[in-house]
Write a protein that binds this DNA or RNA. Structure first.
Lengths: 337, 337
DNA sequence: ACGGTTCAGTGAACCGCTTCACTGTCCTAT
DNA sequence: ATAGGACAGTGAAGCGGTTCACTGAACCGT
């Protein structure tokens, strides 16, 4: 029997004011200092607190920011979510975190759900940046995209993936690797992500013999994908488009008794905190997660507060060398041609 | 200029029915099959979808389940959150994930916030299970607690921490360890968690020389806490009350050039997926996260649907031996007394 | 003394849906 | 034939805030 909470009308009655006045007073607008004090006191007395749902219905705003993650199984995205969540709270906003599970259809549904929840803004790491509904969505609320650019967003924190890919592949090529497997989280349903295109282009430029395989972020699943490729095509190096996936390669290598980097070199992409703890440490492309968090929070807060100018922050990567990449062994036999 | 969405009244007009009838029809109550079809068709035609906010205000229900995590920096809690989020979606509900950052005060605020959001139920991993507001909260909505028991909850998935602690400490004691440091995520503000009490009791029973230190889940912070203790009191073994914290010990050991388990044995508590990947693998207490997720989802769904009977699921741990614990070296000199 | 501003505060109409109490109708049992 | 139920559907009152258009009063300079 939870006793009913006080409503604004009761506060109004208690202070002898109109509900409207109370509403204004509590938000610090249009009323005298003195009334404001009186209202505050009465509200405290009655234990009154505005109902966020009613408020959202009436005003169309909630103070919440939606955070739609492409795949929360990716540890890096988990870190990002936690960081953003914290960053927003410092701005007196709070985040609603949703997970699209790598499924573009679910991504669409959830994005709409968030809009319906009246979030003041949406931060998204798109699974499918090319999906048409983004444009529509961007018209009805401020959207900040992380990773890939989206048409019509209020802001974006984009990764210079071209540079990131170059960094990674040049590192590999520079150490003499030729046959490299690329594990990407790309779904079959969303081919041709910009990042993948870069891989192909760079591989071509560097004369690498590339094999692209898609792998999930989930450790168990990534492990079996890695197991498959390590035991069949036996590449000299594996470049993973997420540290999470690289962890799967470590696990698979362990299962197969392969040594890293002795038998196979591994590169990641993210720099998740755990990557430095592995043995050997994972050589990866560092995207400065703190910088991304700060930028995203700043952009969305500004956009939600009405600052409309589209802003773009480009994140530059750095190579974080640790120990999972070694010089390629001299070619056992000349290239097969 | 996002064109306004259709409302229930427009659907009513289109079908020649009253808004009430439409409302009922869309929820499959009290109307003839034929009307239902007609309404469905019109709704689809107009692209109508019920506004969740208005619905929540009017009905007091949302279909959402709140998930309040004690500290999302704990990787295990992250995994749990992701699992629960997924499990709920399969039940056509969706989770609102919040993070108390290990702060009891924030925990209180967020719990209330969730109640105000009209969540149909709340899953919580309490930072401070002894806080008085829980009892109150449990009266106004179904609560399922994970980890520590809460008075008045609709359900709980409790860990048999007594057993877990026994498992861990007996393992250590059995290998000859005497001086063991215990790193717990306990906040200074919430002493005497049941788990800590068990540690003290068991240590006493096993004749261990215990030093309890609190450490955060965050890798960097955990590392420095571990660094401190490893370099000052140099215990033979460290028992961490969360795998996340154990990761900090690994990092600190690396910094100090200590070998695990040669110089110091390490035990975790959780069994996070990454624990098996470290070198050496982290010996830990496995709580079967999948089982917990399933139980929690089942309990909260049942409770939210009105099943009121209080249910309790006790989770039993198993020891997962990997390689981070070794036989203690023979005492360098007899016990100091 | 007078029109013109400001300022504090009011009433009532929403926001979009749910739900309660009620009206007809048609069917069935007596 | 008639009381009694079921059933389909309606009207209007909310849910608890916000906001728009407006009213008085006080203050301004001239």
């Amino acid at each position: 029997m939870p006793r009913k909470r006080a409503t604004i009308r009761e506060v109004a009655r208690a202070t002898g004011l109109s509900p409207a006045a109370v509403s204004y007073a509590l938000r610090g607008m249009q009323v005298s200092e003195e009334t404001m004090e009186r209202v505050r006191a009465a509200a405290a007395e009655l234990g009154y607190e505005a109902d966020p749902i009613a408020r959202a219905l009436a005003s169309g705003r909630t103070g919440m920011i939606g955070l739609l993650c492409g795949s929360l199984e990716d540890l890096w995205q988990q870190s990002l979510a936690v960081g953003i969540s914290r960053g927003l709270r410092e701005k007196d906003r709070y985040a609603l975190i949703l997970d699209a599970v790598g499924d573009p259809e679910r991504e669409r549904v959830l994005a709409q759900q968030l809009r319906d929840q009246r979030v003041d803004g949406l931060i998204v790491q798109p699974v499918d940046p090319a999906a048409p509904f983004w444009a529509e969505l961007c018209e009805s609320l401020p959207v900040v995209a992380i990773g890939d650019a989206l048409a019509g967003t209020a802001g974006e924190v984009v990764f210079d993936n071209r540079r990131g890919v170059t960094l990674a592949l040049e590192h590999l090529a520079g150490l003499g690797h030729r046959r490299v497997a690329v594990l990407t989280p790309t779904q079959a349903s969303t081919p041709d992500r910009p990042a993948d295109v870069h891989v192909l282009a760079e591989a071509d430029r560097l004369g690498l013999d590339i094999e692209v395989v898609s792998a999930p972020h989930d450790l168990a699943a990534a492990t079996s994908a890695a197991h498959e490729i390590l035991s069949t095509s036996r590449p000299g190096a594996v470049f993973c488009f997420a540290d999470s996936i690289a962890y799967g390669v470590y696990a698979a290598a362990k299962e197969l008794g392969l040594s890293i980097p002795g038998d196979v070199s591994v590169m990641g992409y993210d720099d998740h905190p755990m990557s430095g703890l592995l043995t050997p440490g994972l050589t990866t492309v560092d995207w400065d997660i703190d910088g991304i968090v700060r930028a995203a929070v700043r952009l969305i807060a500004a956009a939600a507060d009405g600052g409309t100018r589209r802003r773009r922050v480009v994140q530059e990567p750095t190579l974080r060398e640790r120990g999972s990449v070694a010089q390629a062994p001299p070619a056992p036999r000349p290239a097969r041609r």
